[in-house]
């Protein structure tokens, strides 16, 4: 019984949150890695682009709510995602046309494109703040919980409760669906294969008759879908605040590099590696051990490896270790 309680405790406070957070990071990391692999630059506007897409989901949610449109138990935001994706892709393609394409045609070094993306980051941040402001916004409606702690306790008779938030299930479910479709597209379709070919060897792809403009276009479309969905899921689960999205760029980069930048499957796993490391290392295991150990041995400290203040620092330390020992990522050789 105590063992089950301990497992439920871990599930409730570490595994479920880590899976959720990991999914959100994974979507962002695939976005980073696709841009890096195909357009060949580190996109420092990643966090703000995700924020941009989410902004439309938030605004449209408010608008739909004012019209009385809702999805019942599901959050209205799900309904707004397709429109938000459309706006996001439109914005990305506009930026690409007026900013990035010039450097791509000129074959500028990646560093220069990365620096240009810093400029895009500034502009995107300004647009977001001018439109929606820098404030914290919650836009989750519908049913908040699938399972409440008290219900769970009643159901099972356990002393430890399990809470399942609807956003957690939605995040994990939608991530699995989106990522599966994306990998199917990249691996099994002619266009997907041509994108991987372009990413692998640009010159030979051109000699094979692959149209670079089309590859770039599709890359931005996929990136727009991933960025908007990832950002909206994060916002539903926590809240929408532009500054936080900018900061999220950092663990997302960490996830992409840990997975081996340019490798979408690695980025996907990298998201979970970062999330689990962050949460497992900062969780206070006192109660966990209280369940498992006899009373005499119960720890009197928090049994916390690191303070939660260092959450970000953990992912960055992992990144530094990976860069040191396996700069091509920990999933090297397992490219999809």
């Amino acid at each position: 019984m105590e063992l089950i309680n301990a497992i439920i405790l871990l599930l409730n406070y570490t595994i479920l949150p880590a899976l959720t957070y990991g999914s959100q990071l994974a979507l962002g990391a695939i976005f980073v890695t696709l841009i890096y692999g195909i357009l060949r630059f580190a996109n420092f506007a990643t966090g703000d682009m995700m924020s941009f897409g989410t902004m439309f989901a938030v605004l449209l949610t408010y608008y739909f709510q004012s019209l009385g449109i809702s999805l019942g138990v599901l959050p209205t935001a799900l309904l707004t995602i397709p429109f938000a994706i459309f706006m996001m892709i439109f914005y990305m393609l506009t930026i690409d046309k007026f900013v990035f394409s010039y450097y791509r045609v000129k074959k500028s070094p990646p560093v220069q494109l990365a620096m240009v993306s810093v400029g895009v980051m500034f502009v995107t941040q300004a647009i977001i703040r001018i439109i929606i402001g820098p404030f914290d916004r919650r836009f989750l409606d519908g049913e908040k919980f699938i399972l409440k702690a008290t219900e769970f306790k009643e159901m099972t008779g356990l002393s430890e409760g399990l809470t399942i938030k609807s956003t957690q299930v939605l995040t994990i479910f939608i991530t699995i669906v989106v990522v599966s479709i994306m990998f199917w597209f990249l691996n099994k379709t002619k266009t997907g294969t041509s994108m991987r070919a372009y990413s692998d060897n640009e010159d030979l792809a051109l000699l094979s008759g692959i149209d670079p403009k089309r590859v770039v276009l599709i890359t931005w479309v996929i990136a727009g879908i991933l960025a908007t969905i990832g950002g909206t899921l994060y916002g539903l689960d926590k809240s929408y605040r532009p500054f936080v999205y900018f900061n999220n760029m950092l663990p997302i980069f960490a996830a992409a590099i840990v997975g081996g930048i340019g490798n979408p499957f690695g980025a996907f796993l990298g998201g979970y590696v970062i999330a689990f490391a962050e949460i497992f290392l900062t969780y206070a295991y006192k109660k966990f051990f209280a369940y498992l150990l006899p009373e005499a041995l119960e720890p009197n400290s928090m049994v916390q490896l690191l303070s939660t203040d260092y959450k970000f620092a953990i992912s960055f330390s992992i990144l530094v270790l990976v860069l040191l020992f396996r700069p091509s990522g920990i999933f090297e050789g397992k490219k999809i």
Partner: peptide, 16 residues
């Protein structure tokens, strides 16, 4: 060649 793709995928890209 496309070093990251399989042999068959290389041929498929050739027939793009």
């Amino acid at each position: 060649v496309f070093a990251e793709l399989t042999v068959r995928e290389n041929l498929e890209v050739g027939a793009f």
